[in-house]
Simulated scan of single mutants.
Amino acid sequence: MENLNEFLNCYNEKDHSIALNNRNIYVSYSGDYKGNPINHVHNSCELLFIEQGGGEYKIRDQQYHIEKNGVLIIGGTDPHSRRFTQVPCIRYGLTVLPAFLQSLPVINSYMNVYRTHSPEEANKLRGIDDVTFNRMVSIIWQLREETKDNGQGKGDMVYALLLEMTIILNRLLQLEKQDISGMYKTMSDIKNYIDFHYAENLSLEELSRIFYLQPNTISKNFRKTFEKNINSYIHSVRVSNAVRVLEKNDISITELSEVVGYASVNTFLRQFRESLGISPLQYKKQFEQYKEDAGKTRLTWDIREKKKY
């Protein structure tokens, strides 16, 4: 556990966007004093711990309500939009890359925690008792302190804190541990391959050749393991990485589609719009406006009275 690649920041839009896609673990604290609506998607799984206020999230076409003492989990590459209806909406954020979690002993058998749950399941994370909620906030504070040096020499403590957080959430959600051997491991390997090779040929035939499995075996077991169609997952990873590129660069749509693995610009545009409801150019404009608005209405660690739990 010595070489964990942890990062931390308070709220900085540029760093936050980078962290959501590239960093193994990232802790944030933010409060919005306006609705600040946005459509978004990123590679990390995002956990939101609501300290005050509330609002509505739409994740993969399903509606979720957030409120004080609640936790919302957004699976990696799942498109989502939000609108704060009770402001200020003040929350802690913990983002973790799924591939990083899968590399950690014990935690990798609780990966069902780190996905978007059905609205019915998600209701189990609303109105959490003060003792449990405050303990999770305390863990976030400790993670913030432990990652100030980017994890130098403190990997074991970060792992212990993540494990405790995972077990607390698993108990609240009442999920069973997963058997991480056999087909689950193979499907996880395929999922990780997609995450890192999204710009390459990812046809079922190519994955079949690489992993020595029949295409229908991959398709059936991927859906069974992750509750997602494998082709839909490939598109979601590509769109998520397209968003990451858009947020950092000025790039033509043709070049962008090639960078994330699409041979057809029209296919890329269709998949992007299906995921986020807008075109890449509209997203770029929306994101720039969001950064400007959020910079005027957002609270961060540095201007908050730091209350320890």
Results as ranks from 00 to 15, higher is better:
Ile38Ala: 05
Met165Pro: 00
Gln286Ser: 13
Lys68His: 14
Val260Thr: 08
Lys248Glu: 03
Gln52Asn: 13
Phe226His: 05
Leu207Ala: 03
Leu143Asn: 08
Gln142Glu: 14
Glu176Ile: 04
His40Val: 02
Ser181Arg: 14
Val87Glu: 07
Glu205Tyr: 09
Phe268Lys: 03
Lys306Ala: 11
Gly155Asp: 02
Cys10Trp: 11
Ser257Ala: 15
Pro98Gly: 05
Leu175Ser: 08
Gln63Ala: 04
Asn123Val: 03
Phe100Tyr: 15
Ser17Gln: 12
Tyr262Arg: 02
Asp156Thr: 13
Thr254Val: 08
His65Trp: 10
Pro88Ile: 08
Arg83Ile: 14
Glu227Asn: 15
Asn3Thr: 14
Asp195Phe: 07
Asn134Phe: 10
Asn22Trp: 09
Asn134Tyr: 10
Leu269Gly: 06
Arg273Glu: 06
Phe196Asn: 05
Ile218Ser: 01
His16Gln: 10
Tyr92Asp: 01
Tyr33Ser: 11
Thr77Tyr: 15
Asn249Phe: 08
Val113Ile: 09
Asp129Ala: 15
Glu274Gln: 09
Asn231Leu: 03
Lys284Phe: 02
Tyr309Leu: 14
Arg244Met: 01
Asn108His: 14
Asn69Asp: 12
Gln142Lys: 15
Glu51Tyr: 06
Asp302Ile: 14
Ser28Phe: 05
Arg244Lys: 13
His65Thr: 12
Phe49Tyr: 13
Gln271Glu: 07
Lys185Thr: 01
Asn21Tyr: 08
Val260His: 03
Asn266Val: 06
